[in-house]
Nucleic acid binder design. Sequence first.
DNA 1: CTCGATCCATACGCTGACGTATGGATCGTA
DNA 2: TACGATCCATACGTCAGCGTATGGATCGAG
Lengths: 187, 187
Amino acid sequence: MAKVRTPRGAWVEAALQAMASGGPDAVRVEALAGSLGVSKGGFYWHFTDRQALLDEMLDTWEKAVVEDVIARVESQPADPRAKLRHLFALASSVDGFATELALRDWSRRDPDVAARLHGVDNRRMEYLRSLFAQFCGDEDDVEARSLLAYSLFIGSYFIASAHGDKSRSQVLQLAIDRLLSDSWGAA
Amino acid sequence: MAKVRTPRGAWVEAALQAMASGGPDAVRVEALAGSLGVSKGGFYWHFTDRQALLDEMLDTWEKAVVEDVIARVESQPADPRAKLRHLFALASSVDGFATELALRDWSRRDPDVAARLHGVDNRRMEYLRSLFAQFCGDEDDVEARSLLAYSLFIGSYFIASAHGDKSRSQVLQLAIDRLLSDSWGAA
DNA sequence: CTCGATCCATACGCTGACGTATGGATCGTA
DNA sequence: TACGATCCATACGTCAGCGTATGGATCGAG
């Protein structure tokens, strides 16, 4: 009756789950084994040590939140504004955002992780620029809007404040509308 | 010769420093004692346990990054736009931002910390609203700009991407100029 | 100089987590 | 059924970190 296969991928998935809910220090071999219903015996058959699991976990995550997301948005033809709204919708629905926050915190202590996040930020910002540039003439405008958009994405998951009688998603919508507007005056 | 006084405040300060550079799990009693040049013997004279130190540390931080900052901005008379620029300048210069990021990460696992951060966010957003409302008629505009401004503050410390030939502070300036502009069109 | 208050050093017990070693248990295939 | 490949259980050694206990060490006041 005992399930005989706990494949490599199952450990990685459990690790991402633990990372999301408890941060890097919660990714403990014995705890993962417990959540998978097995003992840690098998873990050391798949992985040489804990670090090997962390590396593979980062590989998996990185691909999922950059390449896969961009591919989904690009898969259906639409104008750039619609793609940006689609992007935000995808980002807002990702329940795995906790993982990203945990990784960003971790990156401040681990140079390897920091380098990976750096790459993720650059690829995302480059994609944002490419979309904004399609309806935004001024180069400075493109850069400012891209940074504001990305900041909104990051910040909206961090900031825990009330907005009076408006819901969080309503306020987000207001902000996005303004980021997608035709023109901005500078102060 | 041996320094006889390592006051309570010194432990709190060392804890904040450790929090900034290594996160909550780096706030270890024995490590703090080491960085202060003493053994942990004295620690348990001041504090009942590690949690007591963490609580006092949060009290100290909370006051420093909300009340003290607002008081500094309000201390000199200026128009609301100048105050907002002052606020951003202060925020950008704060070297203790790493502390804030570590606390935000921690808050996802600790309800008490989460409640404190929630309060901090509300007080800061309320202050932003009060400033934007002074030159911004529409209520939705005030809310959207406040959230974007706060997101920019948070996000700019997280996002690690290059901006071509422009420096990070230049791009930030571009974004702030737009947040302070007279009017925005909606998409 | 004495003495109590304040602060520190050292040694200890305990727990949780990593990694190792070794002997199974289960599965696919012939 | 036999057997090798794959996966798991258990016990163990080691180490880091918390909290405790106890005996100092230093300082200010009188």
